[in-house]
Design a protein around this nucleic acid. Structure first.
Lengths: 336, 336
DNA sequence: CTGAAAGCGCTAACAT
DNA sequence: ATGTTAGCGCTTTCAG
């Protein structure tokens, strides 16, 4: 019984307005060349029939879809809701749409990328996930701008927008040492992630250079509270003398703090100093008051979208960009 | 210098394999009718040229895009990262893709819906955002399945998948009363949201029916920690005798707990009982150990995707579905 | 400024 | 089972 009326097309509007199809097309094409008389007639007919151009059909001719693929791993880290928030907003502000792919649960990044490319995306951002040479090549071949977001791949031929995690690690080390902590530990995120690698390197290098003892160096299996808690239990049980720890992210830091307080009865920041990473909303909660390192997410996303839209506009300088954004320490109450 | 090679098309493959274009098309069409000899030749050529069919061109004929629009407000509530996680996964599992729209910051839902429809989406889910009659009508007219997710609109003519928030509110009230709390308060989310309205109604009704005193009835401006904290400061300052509060969500509950503990020196659960909503990861953190109400998100998302894909398959019974999912109480440490 | 005609990459009858 | 022929809804020369 459902009257399955197919969508109104340009020719319907043309008929209604008594003009040609091309006329309709021109009215709906930004850089047009239409008389105001024509525009009014067409617009009236379109309004009446509730017409909207079919972007897909259009893209077949224009070779532009205004679609930007976002491949995101790690839907566990609450920070990435902000990532998606910022990306969708920034894209929408430029008239672009986000085609989101989830590669969390063992989904193949390369396969996802292939699928996303079948939609003729005008750009691709791979956020917090690794990517293959094949993917990079394919994008290059098809002239699709590709940017690795919040990731520092080894591959030199791809745009990178990322926090300067290594500098962030050094910053954490310097601050801990400056405040008198002398038995330091690193409790990072998954060993496989590039964020972990750089934060760890920066931290450990700076600790070593200062001649301070690095008591432990552990990885949580995920960037989550539970994983942080589990890792902390093991680490703190084994090394009772740790007095300062730099954590892979805020969630992991919360896990460490809870284990320290509720399992070992330690006082923060006197017995144990803590630094996190990301500055999520709850970092400022009274229960944690976490001193942490913030990355300029807004700027990073904006830059990413800029790179993509510039490349789309053909203002592509051709050479890839590697943008590392400085992190800042947000002082709260977990350092003495 | 960049050799802007346009994408490989079916005719390129046909040429390479020495067959017709239709043959190529058939090989890449699931319900095919191709000899294995042909399939091999085409596949070999496709492989060699790295061909992938253009889904947009295809959808022009098939009238299917495999695109499902997700219009989401409230990118502040960390629970919705789970929402997006589940939706993208469930859609991908069915070969569908998520076209995500952000209507957080004063973006018009109806306008977003129009834009999303220009992409010829096969389905539309409006998550945690209000929708207009116009949108409902337009979807109906074009035969696009539409479901309101985590929302209970007044409009009767739209599919609804939502937690039974009213029952959840009653559950909270009963539990608080059962544990001996007698000066109750409701500290909900934004007054404009349907979730708040139903949770509030259920809670207040049940409190009233039990003849227990409802001391305060307040709304946080957002479903966030900060908003919860602000509202709690005011509420707890004004009403010192409150001994039990049901919160709009877990984040708000954290705010209330922190104000109670760190500003008023109250002990939870002895001086004050707390119940939250959502059961986010941190609800189980040692620092909070929040007793809360969980909605079956997985089931809800699965049902939503089912409704959409059934409608797409034409197995549409025609009548709209209104599914209210039961909530369950997760006991931790904020009730005596 | 406007209309006619060709064609974007693909699928779906229709023949063979 | 395969090739041929028409389009899907739109943009874009090209004439006028």
């Amino acid at each position: 019984m459902t009257e399955r009326v197919s969508r109104i097309t340009a020719s319907d509007v043309a008929l209604e307005a008594g003009v040609s199809i091309s006329a309709v097309s021109r009215v709906f094409t930004p850089g047009a060349s239409v008389s105001s008389k024509m525009r009014d007639r067409v617009l009236a007919a379109a309004e009446k029939l509730d017409y909207m151009p079919n972007v897909l059909a259009r893209s077949l001719m224009t070779q532009r879809t205004a679609l930007v693929g976002i491949i995101l791993a790690n839907f566990q880290n609450p920070m990435h809701l902000t990532t998606l928030d910022l990306f969708t907003s920034a894209l929408q502000a430029r008239g672009l749409r986000a085609l989101v792919f989830n590669v969390s649960k063992g989904v193949d990044v390369v396969e996802s990328a292939r699928q996303v490319m079948q939609y003729g995306v005008d750009g691709l951002v791979v956020a917090a996930a690794s990517m293959s040479q094949a993917l990079v090549d394919q994008c290059a071949r098809q002239g699709i701008p590709l940017v690795a977001y919040a990731r520092q791949p080894r591959n030199a031929k791809v745009n990178v927008v990322c926090a300067d995690n290594e500098a962030g690690g050094r910053l954490a080390a310097r601050k801990l040492i400056e405040r008198g902590y002398r038995k330091l530990a690193y409790l990072g995120g998954p060993a496989t992630t590039s964020t972990n690698a750089f934060r760890e390197k920066g931290f450990c290098d700076a600790v070593g250079e200062a001649g301070v003892e690095l008591v432990a160096r552990v990885n949580a299996t995920e960037y989550t509270y539970d994983a942080g808690r589990k890792a902390a239990i093991q680490m703190l049980d084994e090394h009772r003398n740790i007095d300062g720890v730099f954590c892979g992210n805020d969630l992991v830091a919360f896990g460490v703090m809870d284990v320290a307080r509720y399992r070992h009865g330690l006082t923060i920041p006197d017995d144990l100093g803590i630094i996190g990473f990301d500055d999520i909303e709850l970092a400022s909660a009274d229960a944690y008051q976490l001193t942490t390192i913030r990355q300029p997410m807004s700027d990073m996303v904006q830059q990413t979208v800029d790179i993509i839209s510039q490349a789309m506009a053909g203002q592509d300088s051709g050479n890839v960009k590697r943008l590392l954004f400085p992190c800042t320490l947000i002082e709260r109450g977990t350092l003495r």
